[in-house]
């Protein structure tokens, strides 16, 4: 595993995960469909997981990979709660477009 990282270079992984992270950020900022926004959050978190695993191999240290398990479990719990909120919005509004949520202003 180590020689692969040497050949490719850890920076490449950094660029890739920064790119994925930015895709997630733009997805949240630009898209208006709640499901796609959730997917963008997942892309952000998975970009970080990729980075953690790459650094873990780079440093020859297992704690980064253990952290990935924590972050995967947390991401799953987070999206479960998000979907529950989304379901109750869909029941009230009949739509999952974020632009319909404009009651709170001031």
């Amino acid at each position: 595993m180590e020689h692969i990282l040497k050949e490719i270079g850890v920076e490449t992984y950094l660029y890739l995960s920064a790119l994925l992270f930015s895709i997630g950020v733009f997805g949240i900022l630009l898209r208006r469909n709640a499901i796609i926004m959730f997917m963008s959050i997942e892309i952000m978190l998975n970009a970080v997981n990729l980075l953690l695993v790459a650094f873990s191999t780079f440093h020859q240290d297992a704690s980064g990979q253990v952290f990935v398990f924590f972050s995967m479990a947390v991401a799953a719990a987070e999206v479960a709660v998000g979907l529950a909120i989304l379901v109750s919005i869909f029941r009230n509004l009949g739509s999952i477009d974020i632009d319909n949520l404009k009651n709170l202003k001031g």
Binding site: V25, I28, L51, F67, L86
Partner: peptide
Amino acid sequence: KSNEAGMKYFLMGSFASGVILFGIALIYG
């Protein structure tokens, strides 16, 4: 109103968590 608050808080909060997580990964690096 409560749905909307939950949704907004969820989106902003998990966005912030993602940013914090990326920061943690870079510090680990």
